Amino acid sequence: MNLKDPKSVRISGMGGQGNILMGLILAESLVNEGYWVVQSQHYGAQVRGGLSFCDVLYSDEVIDYPKAEVFDVLYIMNDIAFPHLSMVKNNGIVFYDSSYIKALPQTVSRITKKIVAIPASKLAYEELGNTNVANMIGLGAIAKNCSIVKLETLIKIMKKRVNPRFYELDEKALKIGYNYTDKKYEIKTNENNGRGF
């Protein structure tokens, strides 16, 4: 039986930015909506400040291999994660926090034109007075833009994962991200995963 490749998302940034939590909530939300899911995470040597990332693979079929070499969706929270830009699929989708990252390397536009700038940290500070919830704004935006999971599912799973005193703040942040962009980029399945160079 030939299994199709799962869809793949990498959330990448600096340790302490909350990208691992984003990946955990996304993965559990996908499980909640009936997908097969594999989630993995990597921390740098430093607890805060080093590169850390979280990968989420999902499919409506069993996933036979738990790693991805290239990704359908990449979310970059800090320029420390620029090396991961080479792992975006041809015509994949790149999101980045434009509060800190003023521009992506020009090489990215050769791989894909689907690039979405989200000033997540700026929005978190201006709208909620707390930059710590920038990760939830980013998560809401990815989920909506790529039609990955419903907002209600994200909110439900977030409440299983965070301290109750942050429920209200994180829910507002998810909603800000979900409503931030009306752009829609569909994740294509089973296209040629190579670069075609």
Rank of each mutant, 00 (worst) to 15 (best):
Leu139Thr: 04
Asn130Ala: 11
Ala173Cys: 08
Leu85Val: 04
Lys114Arg: 12
Gly18Val: 08
Phe53Thr: 11
Val108Gln: 04
Met14Ile: 09
Glu171Arg: 08
Leu24Arg: 15
Asp97Phe: 07
Gly92Lys: 03
Asn91Leu: 03
Phe166Lys: 04
Asn19Cys: 12
Ser52Asp: 11
Tyr65Thr: 02
Ser147Lys: 15
Val70Gly: 00
Cys54Gly: 07
Leu151Gln: 10
Lys122Leu: 00
Asp97Gly: 11
Met158Arg: 02
Ser40Thr: 14
Ala27Lys: 03
Ala143His: 10
Asn19Tyr: 09
Gln17Ala: 07
Arg110Ser: 02
Tyr65Asp: 00
Glu28Thr: 08
Asp64Asn: 06
Ile25Glu: 10
Gly177Glu: 05
Leu104Val: 06
Val37His: 09
Gly140Lys: 12
Ile187Tyr: 04
Ala134Glu: 04
Glu168Pro: 01
Asp79Ser: 02
Ile20His: 02
Leu128Ala: 00
Gly92Glu: 05
Gly13His: 06
Gly50Ser: 14
Ala173Ser: 07
Asp182Arg: 13
Glu186Asp: 03
Gly44Pro: 03
Glu191Phe: 15
Asp5Trp: 08
Gln17Arg: 04
Arg165Trp: 05
Gly49Phe: 11
Arg161Pro: 06
Asp64Val: 09
Val133Ala: 09
Leu154Trp: 13
Ile157Tyr: 13
Lys122Ser: 00
Asn193His: 06
Thr131Pro: 07
Lys122Thr: 01
Gly138His: 07
Ala173Asn: 04
Asn2Leu: 13
Val162Ile: 14
Ile93Glu: 00
Asn179Tyr: 08
Tyr58Phe: 15
Gly23Met: 13
Ser98Arg: 14
Tyr185Gly: 00
Glu127Cys: 09
Leu174Pro: 00
Lys113Cys: 00
Val149Asp: 10
Ser86His: 05
